[in-house]
């Protein structure tokens, strides 16, 4: 599903160049649920943004679903973002003037799905994340956990193959975090590949594989026995 080789990324600020990713080699197969861990500033978000095609690498190869993602032009990149990938941000990134339902409908707008069907499918996904009754609320009327579920519904509505989540529980308390992980595990159960950046050990343990980043390289990559979040919920 995802294959990266010798991935490098640096940021230049004035005179200084900061090397963030220094040759990452990393494969993810379909249906995996991977936690990416590491201390603050180790390059987790940078890596995830590149995988999510929100950012580009300096060098290295990235193959997504057996398609090489080189210097893709923006239009093709947009289509990949729309059809293959779903992204969930720590800070939600919902459009504030749209309701929950309209936020979830938006990716389908860019797939030129007609309005009625957009509405039906978005409503369906909102219900899957347990937010059916909140469809007509605006983001500022929702709690952090609810906002993150809207964001997840929005990421899923276009039925991507890979869901990327950057600290999805970062802004949530632990109970809400577990509820959210429960949702994510159920999504993974349906066959969608999941990559989750997290700081928290217990969240990482709810994945099937943990990758550790330090100083721009992978220092550890291990399979773990998945802890089901549902045992913490209720």
């Amino acid at each position: 599903m995802i294959k990266i080789k010798e991935l490098h990324k640096s940021y230049t600020m004035g005179q200084n160049t900061l090397y963030v990713l220094k040759g990452i080699d990393f494969d993810v197969r379909e249906g995996e649920m991977v936690a990416i861990m590491g201390s603050s500033g180790s390059g987790k978000s940078t890596l995830l943004n590149i995988l999510g095609m929100l950012d580009t690498a300096d060098s290295g190869t990235y193959i997504l679903d057996s398609n090489p993602i080189k210097e893709l032009d923006e239009t093709k990149a947009a289509i990949y973002r729309n059809k293959f990938l779903g992204f969930v941000f720590q800070s939600f990134n919902l459009i504030s003037y749209k309701t929950a339902l309209e936020n979830v409908m938006l990716p389908l707008y860019y797939q030129k799905v007609n309005r009625k069907e957009r509405q039906a499918r978005a409503q369906n996904f909102l219900e899957q994340v347990g937010l059916g009754p909140w469809a007509s609320h605006h983001p500022n009327e929702l709690s952090g956990g609810q906002k993150q579920r809207v964001a997840i519904a929005r990421a899923l509505v276009s039925e991507p193959k890979v869901l990327l989540a950057d600290e999805p529980t970062g802004a949530l308390d632990s109970k809400t975090s577990y509820e959210l992980m429960d949702v994510l595990q159920k999504i993974n159960d349906t066959g969608i590949t999941l990559l989750i950046v997290t700081h928290e050990e217990d969240i990482a343990k709810m994945c099937k594989r943990i990758v550790h980043l330090r100083d721009g390289v992978i220092v550890e990559d291990k399979k773990v026995k998945q802890v089901r979040a549902s045992s913490y919920v209720e």
Binding site: G52, E74, T75, R81, L106, P107
Partner: peptide, 16 residues
């Protein structure tokens, strides 16, 4: 800008 970034992240093409 931010809204446009969000739209692009979920699949808006430059043309759109």
């Amino acid at each position: 800008t931010k809204e446009l970034g969000i739209r692009k992240a979920i699949g808006a093409t430059p043309k759109s």
